[in-house]
Design a protein around this nucleic acid. Structure first.
Lengths: 157, 157
DNA sequence: CACGATTATATCGTGCGCGATGCAAATTTA
DNA sequence: TAAATTTGCATCGCGCACGATATAATCGTG
C-alpha cells in the first residue's frame, strides 16, 4: 500500500459526489430552460408546491441554504414573476414568499421530470434498491454534516 | 399515491446529492483554510500530486471541468504560489501546470484529510460497504451523464 | 419600561461553474 | 501551399454559495 494512496483521485468519495452533483444540475438544465428556471430556483418551487406561502427562513431550513443565498435568488424569481414577496404585518422582519399563478402552473409541467431523469440513471448495474440505499446514506450524512455546523455555532458562544 | 408524489422534496434523489456535495465542501474548509486552498483548488493539487506537469486540458478531463472554470482558478493558484504555468514550446497553445515546492509540500499535510473525514461519515448505520456501493453508483452515473454531454456535442454536427 | 440580546432579512465581496464568445496556434483539406 | 477547420486556452457575464457585516424588528430581563 502506497503512502499517499488515499490522495489518489480514483479513491476519493467526495470527488464523485461533487461531480455527480454538477452533472445532475446540468442534466436538469434542458428541462428547466423551457421554464426559465435554474436548479436552485426549481428547488424553491418544490418547497412552495408542497406548501404555499412560506418565509425565507422556512425555505432555507428545508433546502439547507442561508438567506445570503436565498434573498437574491428569490428576488430574481420575483422579477421573473414566479413568486411574490410580502412582508408580514404581524412580524415586520419576516418575508412571506408565495407562488404566482405562473409559479404554480409550472408544477404540472415539472411533474414528469424526476421519473424521466431517474430513468436515465437506472440500468443493469444500478437498480432501484441501489438508489434507495444511496439516498439512505446521503440522508444520514446530511444529518451528520448539518448538525456539525450547528454544533460549531453553539460552541462559539 | 398522490399525483405529485415525485415532486416532494423528501422523495428527491438529486436534492440530497446537491446538499451533501455542498456540506462536504464545507466540511473540507477547516482543513483547507490552513493551507489557503478552496476545494476545487485542492482537487487540482490531487491531480498534480499523482503526476506533476500536466496541461490545463488534461486536468480538466480528469476533474470534468472546462477551461472557462479552470483557467482563472489556476491563475489564482499561481498567484498564491501553488503552481506555475508555462506555455509549451512544442505546441504554443498548451499551458503546462506544474507544482511549486509549496504546492508539493502540502501533499504531506493533506495526507490525513480523507481518512479523517471518512471517519466522521462512518457510523453504525453507514458502513464501509455502503460507501463502496455508493461510490460504484456515483461512478456509473458519472459515466452516463458525462457521455450524454459528449453525445450532445457530436449530435450538433 | 428600558436596553441589551436575538432574530429575520438583506448586502457585499470572493470564488466557483458554465454558456457564449474570442483568438491564436496547429491541423486538415482542397 | 492557401484556405478552412479544429484545438487549447482565455475572457465575459450571470447565477449561485457563503463568510462577514449591516439593519431593522422583536424578545427577554431586570
Amino acid at each position: 500500500m502506497e503512502k499517499y494512496e488515499d490522495l489518489k483521485l480514483e479513491n476519493q468519495i467526495c470527488f464523485p459526489l461533487y461531480s455527480v452533483s454538477r452533472l445532475i444540475t446540468r442534466a436538469y438544465k434542458p428541462y428547466l430552460d423551457t421554464m426559465g428556471l435554474t436548479y436552485p430556483q426549481y428547488l424553491v418551487l418544490l418547497v412552495l408546491w408542497e406548501k404555499d406561502a412560506q418565509t425565507v427562513n422556512e425555505i432555507g431550513k428545508k433546502l439547507l441554504l442561508n438567506t445570503n443565498t436565498l434573498s437574491p435568488l428569490i428576488q430574481r424569481m420575483q422579477k421573473n414573476d414566479l413568486v411574490v414577496r410580502t412582508r408580514s404585518s404581524e412580524d415586520e422582519r419576516t418575508v412571506m414568499v408565495s407562488l404566482t399563478s405562473k409559479g404554480l402552473s409550472f408544477k404540472e409541467e415539472a411533474k414528469s421530470i424526476p421519473e424521466d431523469l431517474l430513468g436515465k440513471l437506472l440500468h443493469e448495474d444500478v437498480e432501484v434498491t441501489d438508489v434507495l440505499l444511496l439516498k439512505k446514506t446521503l440522508d444520514s450524512w446530511i444529518e451528520i454534516l448539518n448538525n456539525e455546523k450547528e454544533m460549531n455555532i453553539n460552541s462559539k458562544k
